[in-house]
Design a protein around this nucleic acid. Structure first.
Lengths: 246, 246
DNA sequence: CCCTTATGATAACATAGGTTAAGCAGGCGC
DNA sequence: GCGCCTGCTTAACCTATGTTATCATAAGGG
């Protein structure tokens, strides 16, 4: 069940079959299912386990006092939420399901055991958190410096690349369960403008977005439009070779 | 020389005098001075030491291919740059000086020794990184959901609170070396609009900003305007009491 | 099968914020 | 003391994006 997580971590470092087995085992203890809009963790809570997304999409978000909502990041299969809990007293944002989501709950102690036993896993998890942070910074750039078309192009590129990392793309297509309202809450745009922008991008044949499915006819072109450079995702693929000791 | 760092970390956990001494020692080996606009680290580089800001302000930033620049965060005295280097191959952003800056360079090995010897320091550094990440997320919210006045108010509150943490405020005032252009690059606004917004805030007596000095006559009012809530800074002050074992 | 609710599409209009340009003050090199 | 920066201010004008409202369609519930 940890297949997507393993695929992702292997973009950082090769894992031994024992390490993979340990991951499989740790993630097969406890399952949970969430419906769209259901929350996994609330702002203010102190989680006591780590959650691995097996299936479906979730998002981190914050809601301002006056109701405005901002999505802070997406969690797709293979993503884990909140190693942070080892240190921080409480969540400073919430995590909610976007599509139907299946998660594996990994108790705190299991994580500690895992990382104590396998230092390479520990480093891989650390890498994973650092990449997430790097994504946050890139989002600051995206939502502050780019216009609507650029922003949307950039977001599509990021999600497509991330899904491709874990084998969840199909040629130039992937699942894409976001509504236009959610796109707006991500990019800091109104739903009306999200719609306009999408029309424009469809007209330019940059994307085909229909019925929860995204197709990118020409990824390179879209990357150019979005000023997208994947360096911030730190896909240090040579890790595969360099660090192998299986 | 690590006084600001120590003050900051003690917002998370009490430190023993031995731990403090070790920090002082680690940070007194090598100094560096930077002039405004000089870079500490470039995007693409792989740093091999950690830098502690002793004096002055620096910032993390990214530049888009077409020249647009976004400031991603500020580093003030007591802030450290880039524990990340233990894991990531290269910097995904640059760090540059804003005012004249004095930094202490701490070699990688010293950091390892320090965190191996004093697990509490290790946790404190971890906390520190998590807070930085949390700030990034808050900036996504700020620059995506808030209008110009709110954004600016929020930023002023954040910086004031952070400076107060390390004892660098003086009543309701603090040093504030940012130019209006830099404010614009931070908040995703043009310099003209930064100026307009400042006029408006001065007229409302929300801030006095003149000659590199910021005064906030009524912090509570400013927090309200900026929808500022300091929870994302994770000032877990009870750490002082709870965790003392000196 | 109808009713309701979520989503997407469009249009008309309003506005926050961007752009360009110009002037002005303070600091610094010479 | 002059000239030249860099930073701040202001004005006129422009445009990307927000707002409000309406309608169409699709999906799910009873």
């Amino acid at each position: 069940m940890a297949i997507y997580l393993i695929r992702k971590l292997e973009h950082f470092t090769k894992l031994s079959s024992e390490e993979k087995r340990a991951l499989e085992q740790a993630t097969s203890l406890k399952r949970r299912h969430l419906n769209p809009r259901e929350d996994l963790i609330y702002e203010g809570e102190k989680p006591d386990s780590v959650n691995l997304i097996n299936d479906g999409w979730a998002c981190r978000y914050k809601v301002l006092e006056d109701g405005r909502r901002q999505i802070l990041g997406f969690l797709v299969p293979g993503d884990v939420c909140d190693m942070r809990m080892f240190i921080l007293k409480e969540m400073d944002h919430s995590i909610g399901a976007i599509s139907p989501v299946s998660v594996s709950e990994i108790p705190k102690d299991t994580i500690i055991e895992l990382t104590d036993t396998y230092p390479r896993l520990s480093r891989a998890f650390w890498w994973n958190s650092l990449v997430e942070d790097s994504i946050s910074r890139e989002w600051v750039v995206n939502n502050s410096q780019r216009d609507a078309v650029e922003r949307m192009a950039h977001l599509f590129c990021e999600l497509f690349v991330r899904l491709r990392m874990v084998g969840l793309t199909n040629g130039d297509s992937c699942e894409f369960p976001l509504t236009q309202a959610e796109l707006g809450e991500t990019l800091g745009l109104s739903t009306v403008h999200v719609n306009r922008t999408l029309q424009e991008m469809r007209a330019a044949n940059l994307v085909v977005l229909k019925g929860k499915s995204l197709t990118i006819p020409n990824l390179e072109a879209l990357q150019e439009v979005g000023l997208f450079n994947d360096n911030y995702l730190h896909l240090e693929r040579n890790g595969h070779e360099m660090d192998a000791n299986e």
